[in-house]
Design a binder for these strands. Sequence first.
DNA 1: CGCTAATCTAGAACAAGTTTCAGACTTGCT
DNA 2: AGCAAGTCTGAAACTTGTTCTAGATTAGCG
Lengths: 203, 203
Amino acid sequence: MTADARPAAPALTERQEARRRRILHASAQLASRGGFEAVQMREVAEAAGVALGTLYRYFPSKIHLLVATMQDQLQHLHTTLRKRPPAGDDAAQRVAETLMRAFRALQREPHLADAMVRALTFADRSVSPEVDTVSRLTTAIILDAMGLEHPTPEQLSAVRVIEHTWHSALITWLSGRASIAQVKIDIETVCRLIDLTANPDGD
Amino acid sequence: MTADARPAAPALTERQEARRRRILHASAQLASRGGFEAVQMREVAEAAGVALGTLYRYFPSKIHLLVATMQDQLQHLHTTLRKRPPAGDDAAQRVAETLMRAFRALQREPHLADAMVRALTFADRSVSPEVDTVSRLTTAIILDAMGLEHPTPEQLSAVRVIEHTWHSALITWLSGRASIAQVKIDIETVCRLIDLTANPDGD
DNA sequence: CGCTAATCTAGAACAAGTTTCAGACTTGCT
DNA sequence: AGCAAGTCTGAAACTTGTTCTAGATTAGCG
């Protein structure tokens, strides 16, 4: 039921699993207070009751830690969304509604959003697998909203562009260069691409 | 002719202007070698023949420095593009061609691209004015390619989404999660939005 | 139980961004 | 020229992410 996307991870003991949870919790807590800079590795370690070296054994860098935190939050969101799916008439509306719902969730914890999104876009190649997991989760959420079983390549392209817009629009909002209304418009604009691929006469 | 977008800057002397140029040059040079991490403030200062404190007086943080470097490069690109404008039949084609040309320029200096784009997306509120300048430059380049004097609000929205996609696609390419071909597809996909707003029957 | 390997802890040490400061140099002005 | 204000230099200090080490603890196993 809950997807356990960690094939190479060598099965943690119970205490280790508990440590991992404490670390992620401390990370999210600190991030909620003061965003990216407030997540300081020494503080995370102390709040989680774990030595600094141990923290680094579990998450090899601050970026890894925050991307894992994002994975965690996205899982929650995905579960929540599945319980109450969007109710729009066509796919574009449902996707836009879903993303706006996610956006409102982020608005409730803007500092946490800041920490997670900044980490995600700052991540270099060493974090690619983890970032990819986040990306696949996002894709799954959007495809769910579209209600598609077997999307065409064109539709997958549209979804990719929607994800691009989603991430980048979040960044402009977080850095205070775009209003909430502007983000809404951008999301609605990009979702029109879905209509374009639904009736494949645009070519 | 050359837009001097620095209204609050109190007019540098000749030697100061020269220092500023040396710093930006050193920054681009180091970035071309090893990307974001290779741009180390002490090294930039030394390469530019300037004290560390002076470097920080000109650019209050590494992020400011790299965003300014990007402004610089974009100016060049804009000038170059104006000399040889894209030759496509419709606006969408011309924009896609322009962005792919810019993309190829970045491919020639992938490390430099890495440093600039990472700085741009990692920038927090304290860098908003500078990031905004970069954004306006990008918008100008895209509008040039579209060949529009007075874009409608809808068209401006499409341009915003194109910019989002452009930035985010660059990031996925730089972090090795998307191929060059994939970036091309994403750009072409999002450029279809232009057609949508050109013939306003899609609503 | 007792052994061995792995893990965890506390803390020092290192790296790079940023700040600070005393003194030397420039600039603008009279 | 001579002074006042601002700027630049060199170097040290401080911050926070990251690495390293020696010793304590835990887990798995005969």
